[in-house]
Nucleic acid binder design. Structure first.
Lengths: 221, 221
DNA sequence: CACTGTGAATGCATTCACAGCG
DNA sequence: CGCTGTGAATGCATTCACAGTG
């Protein structure tokens, strides 16, 4: 199942492929066998053209006059996204409030992401088992990441130590990182980094509240 | 200080203005009085041109040959973003693991966001006080939002009920919403919506791991 | 005939590159 | 000279619009 990609898929489209895959699962559970780009788009707040364009990057799955077969498309997307069969191994750095919440989040497990490593700097937490994962000391992060072949690292540590913890993940062979700390991280080009900055999101919203500028078009469709 | 905007600021720039404001705070604490677009960009992983362009949307704060005065620029951005003086009133819907973590997150308070309302559907949670906020029953959400003049709503509820809870926020006059539920929400055009979909982020990363495609340029500068 | 798949057109964001100023 | 501020150029994403097809 190589499904090797013809041309590079736009970054923005990749995120939506994942949305489609999830929605198709829902549609299947509702017993829906075929879906048009228009209706799939409506369910997700996207235009039909965008749906078709996104899907066209990874193949030709539709039947003209009918739409897309839900199960076929879902299977294809799952394979392309790598959530078929295989499980992704995840490491969590920082088991505070947010980290614990992520450990407990069932949405990850459902989509094939499994926490295999969790570390914390606090000696009192080390040894505790949270959600089935034993908390190890921070200094063992890179070693454990390598040992458990961790694919994805999640950082919920204080921003002052975020860079050094990030470096440990990279040293342990981790090639994808989600950073919740409000800090800029430097990683080699081979590592993909995604920042989830909660305070920044709120501030951006506040800006629009302040100016009273809605600047959002009505939902498409 | 109206600082009424000349032209609409690109959405992408707004998020970065907030980044700049926070970094300027750090620089000030380090005793740095002036900063060039180049160095400010380096600290945040951005190019100098991008920094200058972003700032040019909201004014002319730099001194040629010197750079930007840290405190002046910080003050200007804080005013523009609405994090100066005023506090933003936030409501949380869903006090589960993630909701509790957000209530406890100090980064919000520091930037002027205050949780004034929290609701949960679980009767056992109603009445409890978490992080100084008393949990109310879900049915009172719109009433409480209006009473406390809530500006921003945060949803950490199961996706099945996300739309109806969202509707309650809108009914209560809330005009900005952050949605953590893996569901598409329909809101009127006057309401700004931001989705934080954790599983989708991981899947997008997994896609790139699968194809082995790094597709990230080396850090600029 | 209803739908896909896609060239072409548009719109938005980033980057270049440099005139202009302190 | 060093650095900002910004037109112009480029590159990326979205949308249009329709030929092609089961």
């Amino acid at each position: 199942m190589t499904s090797s990609l013809r041309r590079p898929i736009p970054e923005a489209s990749v995120e939506r492929l994942s949305l489609y895959a999830r929605e198709l699962g829902r549609l299947d559970r509702q017993g829906i066998g075929f879906i048009s780009s228009k209706r799939l788009g409506e369910a997700l707040g996207l235009t039909d053209a965008k749906v078709r364009r996104d899907l066209s990057y990874v193949g030709q799955f539709g039947k003209r006059g009918r739409g897309y077969e839900v199960l076929t498309l879902q299977g294809a997307l799952s394979r392309i996204l790598g959530i078929e069969g295989r499980a992704w191994s995840v490491a969590l750095a920082g088991v505070g409030n947010l980290g614990s919440a992520l450990l407990a989040y069932r949405g990850f497990q459902e989509r094939g992401f499994v926490f295999r490593v969790a570390v914390d700097a606090d000696q009192k937490k080390v040894g505790q088992v949270v959600q089935g994962v034993r908390i190890a000391p921070s200094r063992r992060l890179s070693e454990l990441a390598r040992q458990h072949e961790v694919h994805i690292g999640i950082l919920t540590v204080p921003s002052e130590v975020a860079q050094e913890v990030c470096d440990q993940l990279v040293a342990g062979g981790v090639r994808a990182i989600v950073n919740f700390a409000p800090a800029h991280l430097e990683v080699p080009p081979s590592v993909r980094l995604r920042n989830m900055d909660l305070a920044i999101e709120l501030e951006a919203l506040a800006f629009y509240l302040g100016t009273g500028r809605p600047s959002r078009r009505p939902a498409p469709g």
